[in-house]
Design a binder for these strands. Sequence first.
DNA 1: CTTCAATAGTGATATACATCACATAATCCC
DNA 2: GGGATTATGTGATGTATATCACTATTGAAG
Lengths: 190, 190
Amino acid sequence: MQAEAILKQHLAKTISLTDEQFAYFFSHFKQQSYKKGQAIITEGDKVDHEYFVLSGCLKSFFINDDVKMYILQFAMPTWWASDYNALYNQTRATINLDCITDAEVLSISNADREKLCSELHPVEHFFRWRTNKGFIASQKRLLSFMNNDAKKRYEELMALYPALYNMVPKHLIAAYLGVSRETLSRLYHS
Amino acid sequence: MQAEAILKQHLAKTISLTDEQFAYFFSHFKQQSYKKGQAIITEGDKVDHEYFVLSGCLKSFFINDDVKMYILQFAMPTWWASDYNALYNQTRATINLDCITDAEVLSISNADREKLCSELHPVEHFFRWRTNKGFIASQKRLLSFMNNDAKKRYEELMALYPALYNMVPKHLIAAYLGVSRETLSRLYHS
DNA sequence: CTTCAATAGTGATATACATCACATAATCCC
DNA sequence: GGGATTATGTGATGTATATCACTATTGAAG
């Protein structure tokens, strides 16, 4: 499917735009191809775009002082990703975004998103709902962190996204769950 | 300060409405008084309102099967609170909301908020930004959970909201940090 | 096909934190 | 004001998970 059709169908789940409105909306996006392992946002960068995944899989992650990696999000097709803290507050990136597999994405600048939100009320509605869902998902994950041990979190993740098991290496799943790769390995071998 | 003035000033940080628009907006809110310890939302309830704190302090929290409590949020004046998962998805409450101190709040129904968002574009903008900020804060807290130990999280919380130390009992701070009250006690006595 | 790097498994040990048990202090309320 | 509830402190012990060290397997690139 073409980029335009994928994004159109994604929007249609939340709002309806006329063909002209959608064409105008779409004209602000730029399609980009990335190779497996390629970085899209690196810590310290100026961040002024967010990304809509057409194909492939991205990860957004944080590297701490001990060079340990924590994954904030895996981004699959039709998901959005960026360093939203840096993007909205116009600060330098503290998190990274890169490609777990080859990937096709659409990018839009922060300024263009804000412009579209103010020009087209339904677009503002769409982005409000996208963030609503992200916020709720983030709160659920927070609760899961407080309430569940590593095994339970692992089972929850696999129930929610079974595709991940074969798509991403186990040490990345560990980095998402917030456990060491050794502990994760022991979890499902017992 | 009166409820109307507090809410007006809060909105003015993000959007501008005419006096008539604000009066219309405000007419959808209902002011309510609660006593210390009183419940606003209880697990299992039908949830159809969210709450804006005028004075006092609320907490939203989850109780697990072992009757252990985890605090999602402390809500201080000008903060919003509800069980957003239940509210947006029209499901029964899985989290509770109650009062740490006597409190005055404004409540608005989900239906009215959605109506106002569609009638007044700036209101939709306001709620998009409110959720944006919540989302970013939630992601930061998630990272803090993965990256920091209890002591570091405690210090972060106290740096961000020093007022909490004297305002809420220590076992609630522990429930927010996701540690036992005993561990929290030992953290700052060494 | 071979080689080197990335990925994955496993034992031994260390550690942060939970849990249990109990003592003390503060606060509520009839 | 005094008795009950709620909040807090602290020792002893248990447990989930991290860390370190090493081996084995897989996969990609020349």
